[in-house]
C-alpha cells in the first residue's frame, strides 16, 4: 500500500480568501441586479425571481458532478491522491447544490404548480442523484485506508455520474409536470441575462468551496503522514 503524501503547495496568504470575498460579493451583486432589473413575468408575477437561484444552483450541481467524474477518472489513471481529494470536495459541494436545487424547486413548485412535490421524472431523478452522492460521502466516511477509499469512491463517483444524463434529459424523454428547458426564444432577454450572470457568480462560489474543502482534506492527510512519521521515529 503505497500512498504519497499530498504535496500541498502553500497558498499565498489571502489569495484564496480574496477570491472567496470577490465571488460572494459578485453573487450578491448579480442577484441584486437580476432582482431589480427583471420585470414580473406575465404568468408567474414575482415568482420569476426564483429563477435566478433555482436554475443556477441546478447548473452548478451538474458542473460539480462533471468535476467528480473527471477527477475520479484522473485518479484511477494517474493515482495522484490530490485528484481523489478534489473529486471528494466536488461531490460534497455537488450534494449541497443538489439539495439547494431541490429545496428551491419545492418552494417554486408550491405557488407555481400548486404542489410542493410531484413524482414526475425530473423531480424524482434529481432526488435520486442526491441520494447517490450521499452514498458516495457515506462510503468515504466508512473507509479509512486512503488508497482503498480513493479507488472505491472513484468507482462509485463514476457510476453515479452515469445518472446525470437521466436528470438532464428527463424532461425530454418523459412528459413531465416540470417544463422543458427554456431557450433564447422562449425567454425574454433580461431574464436570460440575469440567469447567466447568477450562474457565473455561483460557479465562482462553487470553485471557492471546492478549493477550501480540498485544502482541508489535504492538510488533514499531511497531518496524518506527519503523525505516522513521528510515531515511527522518522525524520521529523
Amino acid at each position: 500500500m503505497t500512498t504519497v503524501a499530498p504535496t500541498l503547495e502553500a497558498p499565498r496568504a489571502g489569495r484564496w480568501t480574496a477570491f472567496g470575498v470577490v465571488s460572494i460579493a459578485l453573487l450578491v451583486a448579480t442577484q441584486a441586479f437580476a432582482f431589480v432589473s427583471s420585470p414580473p413575468d406575465e404568468n408567474m408575477g414575482q415568482l420569476e425571481k426564483i429563477l435566478y437561484v433555482h436554475v443556477p444552483a441546478a447548473w452548478v450541481m451538474f458542473v460539480c458532478f462533471a468535476i467528480v467524474l473527471v477527477y475520479s477518472l484522473l485518479f484511477l489513471w494517474k493515482g495522484r491522491e490530490e485528484d481523489d481529494l478534489v473529486a471528494a470536495a466536488a461531490a460534497e459541494a455537488g450534494a449541497v447544490f443538489n439539495g439547494l436545487t431541490l429545496i428551491l424547486g419545492m418552494i417554486w413548485g408550491k405557488p407555481a404548480w400548486g404542489v410542493w412535490w410531484v413524482w414526475d421524472a425530473r423531480l424524482t431523478s434529481t432526488l435520486v442523484l442526491f441520494l447517490v452522492f450521499v452514498g458516495y460521502l457515506a462510503l468515504r466516511a466508512f473507509v479509512e485506508d486512503p488508497q482503498r477509499r480513493g479507488q472505491w469512491s472513484a468507482a462509485v463517483g463514476i457510476l453515479g455520474a452515469l445518472n446525470v444524463p437521466i436528470v438532464w434529459m428527463s424532461v425530454t424523454w418523459w412528459r413531465t409536470l416540470h417544463q422543458m428547458p427554456s431557450s433564447m426564444q422562449s425567454m425574454a432577454k433580461i431574464y436570460w441575462l440575469g440567469m447567466f450572470a447568477n450562474f457565473g457568480a455561483m460557479l465562482l462560489v462553487m470553485a471557492y468551496f471546492i478549493r477550501r474543502r480540498y485544502e482541508a482534506a489535504a492538510v488533514a492527510r499531511a497531518a496524518e503522514h506527519a503523525a505516522q512519521a513521528a510515531a515511527l521515529g522518522g525524520l521529523d
Binding site: G20, L27, I50, V96, I103, W108, F209, R212, A216, V219
Partner: peptide, 27 residues
C-alpha cells in the same frame, strides 16, 4: 415564497462556507 427562496439560498451557502472554514482551521 420569493423571499424564503433567497433566504434559504443564503442560509445554505453561508452555512456551508462557515463549515468549510471551521474544517480547514481544524485541519
Amino acid at each position: 415564497y420569493v423571499i424564503s427562496a433567497y433566504v434559504i439560498t443564503w442560509v445554505i451557502l453561508l452555512g456551508y462556507l462557515a463549515y468549510t472554514h471551521t474544517a480547514l482551521r481544524r485541519s
